[in-house]
Amino acid sequence: MAHDPATRRLRPPTTEAPFARYALMAIAFLFLALFLLLPLAAVFIEAFRKGAGEFLAAFGDPDTIAAIRLTLLVAAIAVPLNLVFGVAAAWAIAKFEFKGKAFLTTLIDLPFSVSPVISGLVYVLLFGSGSLLGPWLRSYGIEILFAVPGIVLATVFVTFPFVARELIPLMQEQGNGDEEAALSLGASGWQTFRHVTLPNIKWGLLYGVLLCNARAMGEFGAVSVVSGHIRGLTNTMPLHVEILYNEYNFVAAFAVASLLAALALVTLLVKTLLEFHYGAEIAAGRKH
């Protein structure tokens, strides 16, 4: 269409000359290829560099299996916790007007502006050997730091805002009308939430959980600080990738990394499908 001389002469005033258009597209595609597409492709190419056999062999390592299991366990605890918090916070913030609401919303976003390393550091300060809490808990045989609870806490910290942040603008947009109608018709509070609110927010909720889960399984900095890097015990998948890479075991490192990259791709795919089919329902809040 753009090559057609007739349209070129009648080019609308709100677009660029074809030459400029192609140049901009070339710049954009080259930039995206260099910085996004190639790094993604490299993960899979490096993983299969020595064939499928070597790739699969990486998953026979018991330490790798332990890392996968730990990552799944951590996500299975952290995501539901933040899911419950996200729904509760969104209900309070979106459905009611109260003093300090803006401040509370800012506080919820706080973990996004804190470096992952600092997110881990705060738990080291709280539960480390120099703290009050750490030695006291240890005297009861409870280990937080360099153990699974610390990893879960750091993961909860960094994934804290994801669900709430998706739901708050969405529920604000939807207003209280549906819930008020249900209540006036005699539904209980729980019934109203279960049968009226939940169906309204389910796609936005899924969207938030998806992003929360991707970050929970992939978190590196915060978890690295609190984990202690004990192979087979406190190594999550991203930490295991680092260890394998630093041991020059590149095929195994990229094999484990490819699993995480596949998770990222599935996340992006489901996210895109959700936006495509339920865009109006979930994107409401993103254009504020």
Partner: peptide, 9 residues
């Protein structure tokens, strides 16, 4: 992609 891909990867 950078939002979804773990930083270590």
């Amino acid at each position: 992609l950078p939002f979804a891909l773990p930083t270590a990867v």
